[in-house]
Amino acid sequence: MRSGALVRRRQLARTLRALRLHAGLTIEAAAPQLDVSASKLSRIENAHQGVDVHMVRSMLDLFDVGGARWTEILDLTREASVKGWWRAYGLDDKCYVPLEAEASTVRDFTVTYVPGLLQTSDYARAMFESSLRSRSKETLEREIRVRMIRQERLTSTIDPLRLAAIIDEPVLHRPVGGPTVMRAQLQHLVEAAALDSVELQVLPTGTGAHPAMGGAFTVLSFEGLGEPDMAYVEHPMGSVHIEKKEDVGRARLVFDHLRSVALEPPESVASIERVAAQT
C-alpha cells in the first residue's frame, strides 16, 4: 500500500456515490436514513470530508451491498483513514505531497529551478530561504526534510516512484545557493539520471518557442489505483490542481512534445556535466 490516503479517500467517495445512485436514492432521500444531513453526505461523496467504518457499514446496508464487495469497501475505508507521514511535519491533505505520495509516475517540467524530487538539501534550503514567506528555523528544517523523504521513493523497491523530468537549460546556469551548492546539485543530477526510476532530459535554449513557454507544470499518474491522471501547477501566489480530463490531456500532450524536442537522456547528462565543469 502506498504511503498516503488522499487518493483512496477520493476512490471511496466515488464508490459510495455510485452505490447510492445504483440503489436509486437521491442524497436527500439517503441522508435522513443515515442520520446525517444532505450537506454532510454530499461532502463525503465529494471527498471533502472523511468517513469512518461505522458510517460506511450503514451506507452499505442501506445500498444493499454485501459479500466480497462489502469487505473490499470496508478495507478501502480503513486505508482512506490512514494519516499520511507528512502530517508529522505540519502538512495537511490539501497540498501536493499527499497526491505525489500515491502517484506511480511523475512527469515534471521546470523552467526556473531543479525539480524538488532531484534537489540536494542545500539547494532546497537556498530555495526556501529565497522565498518571501517567513519561516522559523524549525519550519525550514521540516520542509527540507519533507523534500528529502519524498525522494526516497525513487530508490525504493517497496513503494517505487518513476520520474520523467525535463529541465529548461537556464536552470543549470542559475547558481542557486552559490557555486559550491550548485556544483554539488549538478553532480547530484548526473547521479540521479543513472537511476532506473529516473528519466532526465534538458530542454536546450536553442529549441526556441515551444508549447510550455507559459510555465512549469507536473502531471501525476496513479497506476493500479484506477484514478485518472492529474495536473499540478505551482506559481508565486500558490498552486492549482487540474482534474478536467481535457486539460490534463493537453498537459500530457505538451509534455510529450517537450520530451521529443529535448536532448536525449545521455546528451542531457553530458550537458549537465559540461556546465558543472564550468561552475
Rank of each mutant, 00 (worst) to 15 (best):
A209H: 10
T157L: 08
V171W: 07
Q185F: 02
T157W: 01
A212K: 13
L220Q: 01
L186F: 08
T155G: 01
L189W: 09
S156L: 07
H210R: 01
V181Y: 01
L203I: 12
P228Q: 10
T157S: 12
R153L: 00
T218C: 08
E191N: 11
A209L: 11
R162H: 13
A193G: 12
G177Y: 01
L186T: 11
P211D: 00
M213S: 14
T155L: 03
L200C: 13
R174Q: 14
T155A: 07
V190L: 07
E152T: 10
P160V: 05
H188P: 00
G206S: 14
A184H: 11
E223Q: 02
T180H: 08
L203F: 08
G215W: 02
P160L: 04
L189A: 09
L172N: 03
I166T: 03
R183G: 11
F222V: 07
E223P: 03
A192L: 14
V198L: 04
Q151A: 10
T157Y: 03
M213A: 13
G178A: 04
L154Y: 13
S221T: 13
A164W: 15
A164F: 14
T218L: 12
M182T: 05
Q187G: 15
Q185V: 02
G178L: 09
V176G: 03
G214K: 14
A165L: 05
L186K: 11
V171L: 06
A193K: 13
L195D: 08
G215P: 03
G206N: 12
T218I: 15
A164P: 00
T205K: 14
Q185E: 06
Q185D: 03
I166M: 03
L186D: 14
M213Q: 11
G224H: 10
L220K: 03
E223V: 06
S156Y: 05
A165V: 05
L154H: 14
H210G: 01
V202A: 10
G224T: 06
I167P: 11
M213F: 12
P160W: 07
D196Y: 01
L189C: 04
V190R: 06
Q201I: 00
R162T: 07
E227Y: 10
Q187I: 07
A165P: 11
Q187S: 12
F217Y: 11
L163G: 06
A193V: 10
L186G: 13
L220I: 00
E199P: 11
P179L: 13
A184F: 04
G226W: 07
P211A: 05
Q185A: 03
E191D: 15
D196P: 06
R183Q: 15
T180P: 00
V202S: 09
R153A: 01
R162I: 09
P160G: 05
L220G: 02
L172D: 02
A165C: 08
A216R: 09
A212C: 15
D159W: 08
D229L: 05
D168L: 14
V233N: 00
H173I: 09
